[in-house]
Amino acid sequence: MRALKMNGTGNAFLLVDAREQAFAVTPGGVRDLAEAYEFDQLLVLEPSERAAAHYRIWNRDGGEVGACGNGARCAGWYLTQQSATDTALLDTAYGLTEARRTGDFRISVDLGPALTRWQEIPLAREMGTVALDYALESGGIRLSQPGAVSMGNPHIVFNVPELEDLPVEVLGPMAETDPLFPQGVNAGFMQIRDRSHIRLRVWERGAGLTKACGTGAAAAIVSGHRKGLVDRKCLVAVDGGKLAIDWREDNHVWLEGPVELEGEVTL
Score class of each variant (00 low, 15 high):
Gly147Tyr: 00
Val170Glu: 15
Leu123Glu: 04
Pro161Arg: 13
Glu137His: 08
Glu164Ile: 04
Leu166Val: 02
His155Cys: 10
Glu120Ile: 01
Pro154Ala: 13
Gln119Gly: 00
Gly152Val: 04
Gln145His: 15
Asp133Lys: 10
Gly140Glu: 01
Gly147Pro: 08
Leu163Cys: 03
Glu162Ala: 13
Glu126Thr: 01
Phe158Gln: 07
Gly140Phe: 00
Ser150His: 08
Arg117Leu: 12
Ile156Gly: 13
Leu166Lys: 04
Ala124Phe: 00
Gly147Val: 09
Pro146Leu: 12
Ser144Glu: 15
Val157Pro: 00
Ser144Ala: 15
Ile121Phe: 02
Leu132Met: 09
Glu164Ser: 14
Val149Leu: 11
Val149Asn: 09
Pro154Asn: 14
Pro154Gln: 13
Asp165His: 08
Gly128Ile: 01
Asn159Lys: 10
Gly139Ser: 01
Val157Lys: 03
Ala124Glu: 00
Gly139Tyr: 06
Pro154Leu: 13
Ser150Gly: 11
Arg117Ser: 13
Pro146Ile: 14
Arg125Ile: 00
Thr129Glu: 11
Leu123Ile: 06
Arg125Phe: 04
Pro161Met: 07
Thr129Pro: 06
Pro146Trp: 13
Tyr134Gly: 01
Arg142Met: 02
Ile121Tyr: 03
Ile121Pro: 07
Asn159Val: 15
Asp165Met: 02
Gly139Thr: 02
Gly128Phe: 00
Gln119Ile: 00
Ser138Thr: 07
Pro146Ala: 12
His155Ile: 10
Val168Ile: 15
Ala135Gln: 14
His155Phe: 14
Glu137Cys: 05
Asp133Glu: 15
Met151Ile: 09
Gln119Arg: 10
Pro167Cys: 06
Ala135Asp: 06
Leu163Ser: 04
Ala131Val: 03
Pro122Met: 05
Pro161Gln: 12
Ala124Arg: 00
Glu162Met: 01
Glu164Asn: 12
Ser150Ile: 04
Val160Ser: 08
Pro146His: 12
Asp133Trp: 05
Ser138His: 14
Met151Gly: 09
Thr116Pro: 03
Pro154Phe: 14
Val168Asn: 10
Val168Phe: 10
Thr116Ser: 08
Phe158Glu: 07
Pro161Gly: 12
Gly152Cys: 05
Val170Cys: 04
Trp118Asp: 05
Asn153Ile: 05
Glu162Gln: 14
Tyr134Pro: 02
Tyr134Thr: 01
Leu143Ile: 06
Gly139Leu: 02
Phe158Ala: 09
Gly128Gln: 15
Arg142Val: 08
Asn153Met: 06
Ile121His: 04
Phe158His: 05
Val149Ile: 15
Gly152Leu: 04
Ile141Thr: 09
Glu137Ile: 01
Tyr134His: 08
Leu132Tyr: 15
Gln145Tyr: 05
Arg142Trp: 01
Ala124Tyr: 01
Phe158Lys: 02
Val168Gln: 11
Val157Asp: 14
Ile156Asp: 11
Asn153Ser: 13
Thr129Met: 09
Val168Glu: 10
Glu120Gly: 02
Pro161His: 11
Met151Glu: 12
Pro161Ile: 05
Trp118Pro: 02
Gly152Asn: 07
Ala148Trp: 07
Gly128Glu: 15
Glu164Cys: 02
